[in-house]
Design a protein around this nucleic acid. Structure first.
Length: 274
DNA sequence: GGCTGGCCCTGTACGC
DNA sequence: TGCGTACAGGGCCAGC
């Protein structure tokens, strides 16, 4: 099991970063030569106005002197980890990017498997980041409704779990919370069509699963840690993800595991019957 | 334009 | 103990 930072984990990190970064200037930066990380240096000379989030993307609003401003966009991928420290160990094998801040601290991005990404774009211009450009509504916003989710899911014949992971019907749901939400809504992850009432249930379930993650500071199974290096606690509250072989706590049947869209998927064969 | 499958990438688990 | 192999998975991209 190797969980990735999903919305609750990214939001937990965002809330910790914002008070420590807002108002500070980036005086220097460096990055791994990969094109995934090298844009990090484009933020030098900017002042960080605020740390925001869209889906799983951290968005640092930057004041670069222009009217519109720009943004430093960071996706943590599967193993990305941000931290603030007095200095960066530039020889660390997993250091992918660093930004020196006024006040003599360094924001670092470590990412063992290099699935993370860094971009610097004009504010709100995400054409170069396809997934962010076409990101669905935030799950806790008024724009995310059961009807809207039903319309989004009905627009495609792909499996419901595949669609959730695409980030188009709703932003920020990854493998853990997709399994949790589908279990809560009693929807089989492999179905290709969902009725309007069931889509309503799924929308509620997505909010419930994500809210549990937020309440417990995110899910830590191996790689994820918050800004200060501490672990989340939501792994103790998962009811489906990663529990294959264990009894379903709703009906007692043995939870099963299969691969959907190349992602490990756990579901209950009885109460999530197709 | 939508969908599928391959790829990136490296630590860990497991079998021999 | 050491080696080789399979596996994990978010997002991008080529090909259909």
């Amino acid at each position: 099991m190797r969980p990735v930072p999903e919305l609750p984990e990214v939001e937990t990190i965002r809330a910790q970063l914002d008070p420590r970064l807002a108002g500070r200037s980036i005086t220097d930066a460096g990055a791994h030569p990969s094109a995934k990380f090298s844009p990090a240096v484009e933020a030098v000379g900017c002042e960080i106005a605020a740390v925001g989030r869209r889906g799983k993307y951290l968005i640092l609003a930057l004041d670069d002197g222009s009217e519109a401003g720009c943004e430093l966009v960071v996706h943590l991928g599967m193993t990305g980890r941000l931290s603030i420290s007095p200095d960066a160990d530039r020889d660390h094998p997993h250091l992918r990017a660093w930004w020196r801040l006024d006040g003599d601290e360094v924001l670092t991005l470590h990412d063992v498997r290099r699935f993370g990404r860094v971009h610097v774009v004009d504010a709100g211009r995400y054409e170069a980041i396809a997934t962010l450009d076409r990101l669905g509504p935030e799950p806790f916003s008024d724009q995310f409704t059961g009807d809207g989710l039903w319309r989004a899911l009905s627009a495609s014949r792909r499996r419901v779990k595949t669609q959730l992971l695409s980030q188009r019907p709703v932003a920020g749901v990854g493998n853990i919370y997709a399994d949790e939400a589908l279990w809560l809504a009693q929807i089989n992850p492999a179905v290709r069509q969902v009725s309007k009432p069931r889509a309503g249930r799924l929308a509620d379930a997505i909010r419930t699963a994500l809210a549990s993650g937020l309440r417990h500071g995110g899910t830590t199974l191996r790689d994820y840690a918050t800004l200060d290096g501490s672990s989340g606690r939501n792994q103790h509250h998962l009811r489906c993800y990663g529990r294959s072989g264990e009894p379903c706590e709703r009906c007692g049947a043995e939870l099963r595991r299969r691969t959907i869209d190349a992602r490990g998927t756990t579901w209950c064969p009885v109460c999530q019957r197709r």
